[in-house]
Design a protein around this nucleic acid. Structure first.
Lengths: 197, 197
DNA sequence: GTCTATACCTAGATAGAC
DNA sequence: GTCTATCTAGGTATAGAC
């Protein structure tokens, strides 16, 4: 006996829209595309949503609340040392790429464009927050003496951020390697380098 | 005394278009945007170019010929050992980000979309070629014993490719660090890792 | 080489019937 | 909750005057 959530149709439509936004881009996905993929006509979409913008807004907000909640937990975890926290943050990010591929791709590819609209100003705040998280993790590692202190912190942060999220452009679930395996190889390169010891 | 090339107006228009394509995306840049930025009306653009597609086509082709020419030189260089070749390829790539920021950004952000048109099929060929270059450089390093042999080659290739090119999203000439400084820090992380020795 | 004027199409969105 | 029908804006591209 399944309890049918009151908004299941709405969520289904958002799931379909997210797939298209991720694949073709927000601007390049028409409301007719979304309607076609959903088996209805474009006009009918407006019974569920105000606009195309509202759809992508809801998709991103829901996803980001979950992700940043996880980062907060890691930062607050009393039982993890700085290195373990950094590793955990990378693992959690790859988990997000696995579980919420469309949402990550939309945020990666469309944020710059969406930021030109007032209603998406909160995306800039999320970017700041993300920077805070990684910089804190790195600085704690340096202070504890486990991370190199001769590197430019800002560059290192960008290096990590970019390598993690850009993986969404090629990662596919069910591929040769699980997201955990990929995360571990990434961490190995990031921490130890590819130079032979 | 300057020799005015016969096509300078055409190149000027392409330069302006490239800036807009890089900043706003190909689809999201209208021919009216390009005309406005050039101080002419949209209809006048068609005196110089067949279509918007032709413009981006010419921008990408010109850039890629130069870049892949440089990679070929590195691969063929008899006086460089495997590690030096890898370093040189990274440096050349960051140089491209500095000198041809718009073109790199367009290739990074728009290739997936453009590939849906037949006329841009050559972009897939360039991707294959790029993969060949990095895989060869890495394999040569492993064979020579200077690079770790316990990593997934394909993942390592993607790691390098992504970290290098994604820098175009934040690098700005005249910033705190030159492209050469950035390339060297990147190489330091890539080769030695961020873990304290 | 650029402008004027415009054809033609596709986009997001709305109103009211069912 | 979906369909029919349609409005309006804005997009690419063209033709011919200047």
């Amino acid at each position: 006996m399944t309890v049918e959530p009151i908004n299941s149709r709405r969520e289904e439509l958002l799931r379909i829209a997210a797939g298209l936004f991720a694949q073709k881009g927000f601007k390049n996905t028409t409301v007719r595309d979304i309607a076609d993929a959903s088996g209805i006509l474009s006009g009918s979409l407006y019974h569920h949503f105000d606009s195309k913008e509202s759809m992508v807004d809801e998709i991103l907000k829901t996803f980001q609340e979950e992700l940043f909640g996880q980062y907060d937990e890691i930062l607050a975890a009393a039982d993890l040392d700085p290195l373990a926290k950094l590793e955990r943050a990378v693992l959690v990010s790859f988990e997000a790429i696995d579980k919420h591929r469309d949402e990550v791709a939309i945020f990666q590819n469309e944020a710059a464009y969406l930021l030109t609209f007032d209603r998406f100003a909160y995306l800039a705040e999320r970017n700041r927050q993300s920077r805070e998280v990684w910089l804190t993790l790195l600085q704690n590692g340096i202070d504890a003496g486990v991370l190199r202190d001769d590197l430019d912190l800002e560059l290192t942060y960008r290096f990590i951020r970019d390598t993690v999220w850009v993986a969404v452009s090629w990662y596919r679930p069910g591929g040769r390697r699980t997201h955990t395996e990929i995360a571990k190889q990434y961490l190995s390169i990031l921490l130890e380098g590819i130079h032979h010891a």
